[in-house]
């Protein structure tokens, strides 16, 4: 079988890649997609822990399902905000959306 640490390192790699996308990209869609990468990495961890360390094999999956709910909500709301920003500002580059900047 695959050792648990392999899954954890893979999840860490996906998390770091998502973090890079979050910090380095300017497009709002890219930021949301990088966030999805982060949530996926967390889900891999939850399910791998549940599979390797949990007697009942249920709690990790329940938490992963809740992460799915949050991810869907975050995507829907983020893309709606993106469309609204596009209508008013004609841009989705995060560093050009600076109306609140002092």
């Amino acid at each position: 079988m695959v050792p648990l640490s392999w899954y954890l390192i893979l999840a860490a790699a996906l998390f770091s890649i998502g973090l890079y996308g979050l910090l380095a990209r300017r497009n709002l869609v890219m930021l949301l997609m990088s966030l999805e990468l982060l949530l996926n990495a967390v889900n891999i961890n939850l399910i791998a822990f549940s599979r390797y360390l949990e007697e009942g094999q249920v709690v990790g999956r329940v938490f992963a399902l809740f992460v799915y709910v949050i991810a869907a909500a975050e995507t829907a709301l983020g893309l709606a905000i993106m469309i609204a920003v596009w209508r008013t500002r004609q841009t989705v580059a995060v560093d050009e959306i600076d109306t609140l900047k002092g």
């Binding site: 640490s5 860490a12 973090l19 890079y20 390797y52």
Partner: peptide, 25 residues
């Protein structure tokens, strides 16, 4: 951003390798 992401990955991997994880479910 690349430096931050690489150091997060390095730190997490180091931490993960510190722990004797089970290799079987």
């Amino acid at each position: 951003a690349a430096v931050v992401a690489a150091s997060v990955f390095g730190g997490l991997t180091w931490l993960i390798l510190q722990v004797p994880w089970p290799s079987e479910p």
